[in-house]
């Protein structure tokens, strides 16, 4: 090294920070997303003066519980290096099925497992196509998208109101803590995130997800069960789609076959903004939670401002651009270092 002439304390600081970076470099994008989230909140509060209220913050979770659930499933898929375009349609399909079945008098105890199974089945189809028939995830999940969307319209061409008490309870119940409140759907979403985070960090399956995304060939040669893992992540994403369908149906008090058109893009954007690399191998559920919160906050700010909702898409697009360019720079840098 020709740079050993730096003064000692600085060198030590540098070495500490390097150790930290060596250990946690994959978390940097998530930290960045967190900073952006905080900056957004502070900026909005300074601008509006009445933004950072418990009511507003509670509403973030209430309004975007479905997106959070979808993002958790998508995180699994993207970490393996795949992508799932079907989530918005699966949510619509399971949502309308839920409303339809409840309308026909089935009890929620039957309907909820049934729609989760429906979501899982579509996920399984995608996973099998990807793993056993070498279909690109993009195309396989595209088939899933078409299938689920079509099936949603097969179930019903128009929206169906839900009058089932227990499903509506998910949304109407407000547990209050002072001015803060949370609904059962919010708790559901947070639980999904917590379970997702736990599975990824503390189970062998979760670690295999990362290994597959890092280098599938290696993972196979290391004797890990790659096939099962790859199929399972799509099933997980499908189940999350089913749960999101339930939550959205409860939220809007109705099932609607047009729900969630383009939602897959919002989900992917939220996951990427949260620091998960689309190339696979790196990412955190916590990051995706932050990504969803960033998305939700931008939406809320724009609603507050009374501006065109179109800005949301543009800002999210620009943010996505910023993130992928930064990620690209990091990759180029690390390639150069080797």
């Amino acid at each position: 090294m020709s740079t050993t002439t730096v003064t000692a304390p600085r060198a030590r600081l540098a070495s500490y920070s390097r150790t930290f970076l060596d250990r946690h470099s994959s978390m940097m994008p998530t930290f960045a997303a967190l900073l952006i989230f905080i900056a957004l909140l502070i900026g909005a509060e300074m601008h509006f003066g009445n933004f950072l209220t418990p009511l507003n913050m509670s509403a973030l979770l209430l309004n975007y519980a479905y997106l959070l659930i979808l993002a958790v499933g998508m995180t699994f898929v993207i970490i393996t290096g795949g992508i799932d375009l079907s989530v918005g349609s699966v949510m619509a399909f399971t949502g309308i099925s839920c409303a339809k079945l409840l309308g026909e008098g089935y009890s929620a105890a039957v309907v909820i497992p049934a729609i989760l199974l429906g979501g899982a089945a579509i996920g399984l189809l995608i996973g099998v196509l990807v793993q056993y028939f070498d279909v690109q995830p993009f195309i396989a999940s595209l088939a899933g998208l078409f299938l689920a969307r079509g099936l949603a319209f097969v179930v019903s061409l128009s929206s169906i109101r839900v009058e089932n008490e227990s499903v509506l309870w998910l949304q109407t119940t407000r547990w209050r803590f002072g001015e803060w409140y949370i609904t059962p759907t919010g708790i559901l979403a947070l639980s999904v995130a917590a379970i997702g985070a736990f599975v990824l960090a503390f189970t062998r399956f979760g670690r295999t997800v990362y290994a597959v995304g890092g280098n599938e060939q290696s993972a196979r040669l290391m004797g890990l069960n790659v096939a099962r893992t790859k199929v399972l992540v799509y099933v997980i994403s499908g189940v999350c789609g089913g749960l999101a369908g339930l939550v959205l149906t409860a939220y809007s008090g109705a099932g609607y076959p047009r729900n969630g058109i383009g939602t897959e893009l919002d989900v992917i954007a939220a996951v990427v903004i949260g620091g998960t690399l689309l190339t696979g191998g790196t990412g955190y559920v916590l990051g995706s939670v932050i990504g969803v919160l960033v998305f939700a906050t931008i939406n809320t700010i724009i609603a507050y401002e009374g501006a065109e909702q179109a800005w949301t898409r543009i800002i999210i697009g620009l943010m996505l651009l910023m993130f992928i360019v930064v990620q690209r720079v990091i990759v180029v840098r690390s390639e150069r270092r080797r």
Partner: peptide
Amino acid sequence: IATLVLMLAGRGVALL
């Protein structure tokens, strides 16, 4: 990923 950016933002621009 690259074209996803415009896919997201493009419709927003059209709406504007």
